[in-house]
């Protein structure tokens, strides 16, 4: 890391929702950074706060029910508490998002071409003709065959994979420097998922944008991201390059995720090694380490520390766990890794 400010910097982010049952602590003190041309993966099971985090970055939460604290600096501009007019300028132009469900993200009433062209006209002041040409070009770039014809189709005339491509075209039309992809392939079949992930990587190489890829699937991040953040119960529990985190994971939760997933080459005679129990309620997260009720290493830490004292995530490579880095490495190498074959 250099001393200059990173392209995107999120510091001590808290997002809380007021609900009938109480306050949901959806994001509970999260920090990360991202540079241009790099891809950050955010993994975690459902409800861990991945989407809420990124909606906060784009200022998409309802301010009446949402309390947001912390610092979100995009290219030097503070986004927390920024007026809606400023956020609107950021969205679409500087930062754009693609969602899991292309059917709800695309309007059924307008042609695909028009939905790609509109934000382009709005942000660049291009003419209709120019914007249409741009839409055709974008469709071509995302691999839609016969783009000059398909530009006049409605979303329902596209297959699921093509709609996802169209949504990527829409997000990229203004050359955003930050692209947030929230489970972009979760609804797709595996052969189409592979196409879309490759496409995102290639587009990034051409444009040099920063990408945040959110997914619950550790396999998806393996070939797509540079850095990885593992989230649990609204907190980041492990961070590192994707090679570091998947090659030598340090947090017991990451061990649990890897042990839960069968592999195409694993020993089929061995049962999987699941994490016991279920994720906690975010209305009343457990004290101490939020993972302690499911963690097998509480005794290895000893005493009451896991139950009473919250472990912090160090800057750079590391895990939010009371085990020392040496213990983390030793337990992984000695007990966890042999089970993952």
């Amino acid at each position: 890391m250099t001393a200059t400010t990173p392209f995107l910097s999120v510091r001590d982010l808290y997002v809380r929702f007021a609900t009938e049952d109480g306050t949901v602590k959806a994001v509970d003190g999260l920090s990360f950074e991202l540079e241009r041309g790099r891809t950050l993966g955010i993994v975690g099971e459902s409800g861990s706060g991945k989407s809420v985090t990124n909606l906060a970055v784009l200022g998409l939460h309802d301010p009446r029910t949402t309390e947001i604290e912390g610092e979100i600096l995009l290219d030097g501009q503070e986004l927390t508490g920024a007026p809606e007019s400023a956020l609107e300028k950021v969205r679409g132009h500087k930062a754009a998002m693609i969602f899991q469900d292309s059917l709800t993200a695309l309007s059924p009433y307008y042609t695909v071409g028009r939905q790609i062209a509109e934000p382009f006209r709005k942000h660049t002041g291009a003419t209709r003709r120019e914007a249409r040409l741009r839409a055709v070009e974008m469709l071509k770039r995302v691999g839609i065959p016969n783009p000059a014809l398909r530009v006049d189709d409605y979303p329902h005339q596209f297959s699921g994979g093509m709609r996802q491509r169209a949504m990527i075209a829409m997000a990229l039309v203004c050359d955003p420097q930050l692209l947030i992809a929230d489970e972009p392939t979760t609804a797709l079949d595996v052969t189409v998922q592979a196409q879309i992930l490759d496409l995102l990587k290639d587009l990034q190489q051409q444009t040099g944008s920063a990408i945040i890829l959110i997914t619950h699937d550790l396999g998806v991040v393996a070939h797509t991201v540079d850095e990885l953040l593992v989230m649990y119960a609204g907190r980041a529990v492990e961070r590192g390059t994707v090679r570091e985190v998947l090659g030598a994971p340090r947090h017991p939760y990451t061990w649990g995720l890897l042990g839960s997933m069968p592999r195409l080459t694993s020993d089929v005679e061995e049962p999987l090694s699941p994490i016991p129990g279920a994720p906690p309620s975010l209305l009343a997260p457990p004290p101490g380490c939020p993972f302690h009720p499911r963690c097998a290493s509480v005794a290895a830490v000893g005493g009451d520390r896991c139950r009473t004292e919250r472990p912090e995530l160090p800057a750079g490579r590391g895990a939010a766990c009371h085990l020392t880095p040496e213990r983390q490495r030793a337990i992984f190498a000695g007990q966890i890794k042999p089970r993952l074959r």
Binding site: L197, G219, V220, V221, A222, G247, M261, L340
Partner: peptide
Amino acid sequence: AVPEAADLMDTPAGG
């Protein structure tokens, strides 16, 4: 097409 975390699990970090 199956993306596998395992592809990175056996390579040493920084491989």
